[in-house]
């Protein structure tokens, strides 16, 4: 835990509050429509498939596959200046939605599209835990 965490922190609002609470207890979740079952992330005010207001959060398996990854050599926020370069990966969750995240630790040397990954959580502040992904 780092009391001087200087990287961007989530803006928690009514739509994302449950996601971040689940993350705090190390559970990855996506929004699910109770009417048509559509799963999506980021959350939407109504279900994009059927426009239902009746949506909830579903804890998912945390398993997914690597779709893409990039390495930032530029710091768009001051908090990243000391950490260049850093990696961001794009993961397709087994349940469907795509999420951007980071590798847990260094990027795997054998990274390739389709590589199986699993979610791990990093407690970056006392309130916020971020999901990251490690090779399965």
């Amino acid at each position: 835990m780092n009391v001087t965490y200087t990287k961007p922190l989530p803006v928690v609002d009514s739509l994302t509050k449950q996601y971040w609470e689940n993350a705090r207890s190390h559970r990855l979740s996506v929004q699910r429509c109770r009417d048509c079952g559509d799963r999506h992330f980021p959350p939407c005010d109504v279900c994009p498939k059927c426009l239902s207001d009746d949506q909830d959060w579903e804890v998912v398996s945390g398993r997914g596959t690597l779709l893409s990854w990039v390495r930032f050599h530029r710091a768009y926020w001051d908090g990243y200046r000391g950490e260049l370069p850093y990696d961001v990966c794009l993961v397709k969750l087994d349940e469907g939605p795509l999420v951007l995240s980071n590798f847990s630790g260094n990027a795997p040397e054998n990274a390739r599209m389709g590589m199986p990954l699993r979610a791990v959580f990093d407690d970056v502040t006392e309130q916020v835990s971020l999901v990251r992904f490690a090779p399965e």
């Binding site: 990287k7 961007p8 922190l9 989530p10 994302t16 980021p42 930032f72 768009y76 926020w77 990243y80 850093y86 961001v88 951007l100 995240s101 980071n102 970056v124 916020v128 971020l130």
Partner: peptide, 8 residues
């Protein structure tokens, strides 16, 4: 929403 992971 992706800012916390440094994606922008």
């Amino acid at each position: 929403i992706w800012d916390p992971w440094g994606f922008t």
